[in-house]
Nucleic acid binder design. Sequence first.
DNA 1: TTTTTGTATTCTGCATGCAAAATGGAATAC
DNA 2: GTATTCCATTTTGCATGCAGAATACAAAAA
Lengths: 229, 229
Amino acid sequence: MEYMQQPTPVLRRPLHEEAADRIRDLIVQGQLAPGTRLNERLLTAQFGLSRTPLREAFKVLATEGLVELLPNRGAIVSQIDAERLAQTLAVMGALEALAGEFACLNATEAQLNEIRALHYEMLAHHARGDLAGYFKFNQAIHLKIVKYSGNAVLHTTYRQMNGYVRRARYMANLSRERWDAAIGEHNEILAALGARDAKRIKALLSDHLAHKLASVLAELGRPQAKQVA
Amino acid sequence: MEYMQQPTPVLRRPLHEEAADRIRDLIVQGQLAPGTRLNERLLTAQFGLSRTPLREAFKVLATEGLVELLPNRGAIVSQIDAERLAQTLAVMGALEALAGEFACLNATEAQLNEIRALHYEMLAHHARGDLAGYFKFNQAIHLKIVKYSGNAVLHTTYRQMNGYVRRARYMANLSRERWDAAIGEHNEILAALGARDAKRIKALLSDHLAHKLASVLAELGRPQAKQVA
DNA sequence: TTTTTGTATTCTGCATGCAAAATGGAATAC
DNA sequence: GTATTCCATTTTGCATGCAGAATACAAAAA
């Protein structure tokens, strides 16, 4: 026979990937707080695998910046450093502005409608004063814009940085003014997307993320001297 | 006694880091061509370590995108995909434009002088028609600008992408016109840096990288349909 | 009490072992 | 000649073993 059997969809994923995904989720969701030690014995027992793939997962997560490897003292969940947070948000701003441009050019109408749906969900949560719900849909919108840019490198990079930033939970005391302003900005962003106005969306997203950064910096009390963010 | 002995500078680095660094260099320098299989037995023999840290290094390099892990078939040097290359260059453009702004604000005069020195070295190689020498100093200048932005996240991200891109060696047949134009752009960039003109350097770097991208796309024959780069 | 020292235990970093999968031919069938 | 089957060898993925570093903690000293 000369036909090929397609390589079995996903019979089994490598254990180190499985482990990395599970730990990553625990970290990003906040179940594993910054500074928490990642005890190998406990985690191998919890995940039902051996130390080898677990330790491989540690290395992957360290490369992503979610975990810190201390020589001879194992791995801890990386601390949320105010300066690094600010720097990351600055970079995310540039990335998302670029993503917005591409999304204007490449996104299908169906994809824009997905974003519109999320937008109205978000408005609903804002109207109710539900910050957590707002936050969730807000995140989803930003991620969709980046995804529909069609640039996979951009998407991967952005998501990784978002994983670091999400842990900060700085939104907890978002002021009402800033919240309302953000909603206004989102309305404009949606309009620009619908109009496929790349220049405008770039400017809007750039400003939107700059405001977000400013509000985070205010929250943190501007601990850094230089303006690298 | 209550004094602390400082934690020994670097008595020994973890083996997986050592291995990752060595393999990364081999890949970025082009000694290990895209598609090359990374045989564990050979590499452990060559590096004088066991499979465990070597395989950890593979996972790190896979996370960085330099290596691809094929289930049950080990690791290969990742292929240079034209689309991914274009997407990466687009992202690097946005990153470097941002870096330029920060560098204008943060770089010391001494740091600018370093960049000036590299610039003149580059001009010398251009004058001699030495493409390899030009390429080397051109790279160095761009990396310095990103470094002196003072944004470590930006720097790390940019360097990682640069590692992927460098392997393409697309500069091999840079046209004389484009080369001369690039030199002109670099002169302007240097002037804007010296003048600490953030707005201008952002525009200049954005254009400069867009031109670079265009020249690479021309080289590759524009294989992608959508404009995601 | 507070600090220091000694020691048992735990944990990490790396090497090695083992089963399953993949690879490379040689022999066979078409 | 080309394609298929079989088997030996290699290679991978993961588990386990072992030495040394780190940690915890009790006893001794200040």
